[in-house]
Design a protein around this nucleic acid. Sequence first.
DNA 1: ATGCATGCTTACCTGGAGGTGGGTACCGCA
DNA 2: TGCGGTACCCACCTCCAGGTAAGCATGCAT
Lengths: 100, 100
Amino acid sequence: MLGGKWSLLVLNQLVGGPLRFGELYRLLPDISEKVLVQELKQLANAELLVRTNHGEVPPRVEYHLTPLGRQALPVLAATAEFGRIYAEHIQAGRPQQSIG
Amino acid sequence: MLGGKWSLLVLNQLVGGPLRFGELYRLLPDISEKVLVQELKQLANAELLVRTNHGEVPPRVEYHLTPLGRQALPVLAATAEFGRIYAEHIQAGRPQQSIG
DNA sequence: ATGCATGCTTACCTGGAGGTGGGTACCGCA
DNA sequence: TGCGGTACCCACCTCCAGGTAAGCATGCAT
């Protein structure tokens, strides 16, 4: 469920408060609209976030995290942390050529 | 890198100590040989584990975690923890029909 | 010669995540 | 009449992780 390319990143954007579709779309530079719609739909379906349609014109729809959704954030945190450590490791490991 | 279906599970099996190919293969009931070889190769390439070929006949090859590999385990832990919480949530959410 | 066990390797195939490009319905504005 | 902005939907395509099935090289036992 969290294994997709974007799910955790979408959830992460919502930590600071609810966001509209367009805002999310702009905050995730390389996602496509279709995929964002898809992700939001299945995250809402899994009850990790909630969709609120304000029924206005022009349309206004907001997404916010559920408590359950917040439980997914440690996964992102752990992944990010590992990413940092791994990057450091790469940096430290590369320059072996010019040691001698 | 850790996004594959098996990488974290392979690493997890190695926490208790080095294992041979066949042992890993038996411990991961649903993985295919090809995919296990693949995973091991790319995890070794990423320096998350080390491959030791004992040069014997019949072949004996052992895999063990590197310190860097251990840094990936929190990702699995966080994911597993979320899995538990999510399962609980499902259990708690389902029986709404028979409340009234 | 045959079979067994080990640790792979190769060739092939498939499902589905993810990307592209278009369309929809609504309203205000000019 | 057309344009812009919102939040989508649809048809189509590509790519590759992952799965299946078979082969390889070696030595020992039979």
